[in-house]
Every structure is written in structure tokens, then in C-alpha cells.
Design a protein around this nucleic acid. Sequence first.
DNA 1: TTGCGATATGTTTCGACGAACATATTGCTT
DNA 2: AAGCAATATGTTCGTCGAAACATATCGCAA
Lengths: 123, 123
Amino acid sequence: MPADPVPTRLRLRLLFGTDAMLGPGKADLLQQIRETGSISAAGRAMGMSYKRAWSLVEEMNAAFREPLVQSARGGASGGGAQLTAMGEAVLAGYRRIEEIAAEAAGAEIAALAGFLRDMPDGK
Amino acid sequence: MPADPVPTRLRLRLLFGTDAMLGPGKADLLQQIRETGSISAAGRAMGMSYKRAWSLVEEMNAAFREPLVQSARGGASGGGAQLTAMGEAVLAGYRRIEEIAAEAAGAEIAALAGFLRDMPDGK
DNA sequence: TTGCGATATGTTTCGACGAACATATTGCTT
DNA sequence: AAGCAATATGTTCGTCGAAACATATCGCAA
């Protein structure tokens, strides 16, 4: 068989109770913060305003027992941010969940994708 | 241990290529159509305008090789809609994927939920 | 002590998406 | 032939959330 004509991805979102949630956006943000060492740089890398990035960080820090992101302002480089141990754990956990789910449901997902029309768009 | 303080749910969305996607909303809509035999009744049951429900149906019908919903207008009861065999298959497949993913990742999800603050809100 | 770069946070502006509204159409029933 | 109930589809109107804009603050370095 040829490479699958329609690459199918699985995105998942965890709903904690009524308000708190963790999805691909926050996970990617955590990862970018981890890589760039800055909330603003992470936001830029994702085409997201600093304000929005910061808001998401604030939500996450409030939702868990301990903050996921530790930030500092001032200093030589103006400040920065990095993941706490809790932040590392949550990010790793989310990635693991993604992987496990995609793996477990892979066959079913492929079956569904097989029902798709070949070219959904006009391309 | 007591019942989990924060009931955690998993919602997943399948992204087919760039445009087509299938998530909880469309799946629930399919199920309601199946149960009510009508697009408008399904929309009402979900607090969704007929127009929106119809649009979603149109998207789904266009995305797959065969329509998922077959509709008829006119007639004794004014018309109606029902799932095609393809529609039944897609709905069942999505539910199965949900179940498999939740089951496979259950332990990891519970672990993450354990990191949550007890009362995210003020309640 | 001035400047820089990033965090922190409030206010205003804007645009997309859905709701609401409005019709047209269809085919049984009576 | 008239009426009904639901599909089908276009148009307008509101609203919520994000973007954009605007400051304030911090701490090191030069």
C-alpha cells in the first residue's frame, strides 16, 4: 500500500472537573518554555501573544499543587522562565498519554481514515 | 482512597489532513440523529441551531466516501434523517477509539490528575 | 544611574463564529 | 387543494474570546 493518502493525527484534551483542562496548546507551550527558557520567546515561537502565553501559564500554575513554570524578572537578560520538576512531570505525562493513546487506538483510527474520501479538498 | 476528587475525562479529536476532523461534537450529533431520526430534533436536544447541525452533517457527508447521514424532506412527518451504514460504522469506530484510548491511558491520566490541586475553584 | 529585556497586568479594539431570523422546498395526509 | 413538519440555504446580528495596545516593575550590567 502507498503512504496513507491522508495523514491522520490524534489530539487529546484532558478535562479535570469543570474548569481546568490540559490540551495540545498548553503542552506545546510548556515544551517551548522548556526549550527557550522564556515565556515570551515560547509565545513568539508559537505565534502567540505574550499575554496569552502568560495567561495559560498562570492557569496551569493555579491548577496544580505546585507551579509548573517558575519565572523570574529582571536581571542580566531581563528575566526568564523554566519548568519546575512538577512541570517536567506533567509535560512528560501528557506526552506519554498521547503516545499510549495513539498506539492503542492506531488500528481503529487507521480503519476510520480508510473511509475518508481521497481528496477532501480540491487540491 | 475516596472517590477521585476530580473526575477526569478524556476528549479526543481526529484530524484528517488539514481540513476534515471528527470530534466529540460531531460524534454526539450523529448519535442524536440516530436516536431521534431528525437533524432538527438532534440539534434541539443538543442546544444547537438547526443550521449548525445541518452544516456539521454536510461537512461529514462531504468528508467520507459515502454520506454518513441520509435525509429526506417532505412526507407525512415532514421528513427526517438517519444514519447510513457508513454513518453507523463511523460512529461506532469513534466510540471504540474513545474507549480504547481511555482504557489504555487510564493509569497515566490518573497519575496526572493526582498532581492537581484539590479544589481548583472556590467551591 | 541609566538602559535593557523580560515578566506582569490592565484596557481597548477587532474579527470570526454561532444565533437568530427569514424563506423556499418537498411530499405525504386529510 | 390545503396544511403540516422537516429539510435546505441565505442573510443579518451579537457576542465572546483573542489580538493589539499600553504600562508598570524588576534586577543585573555597563
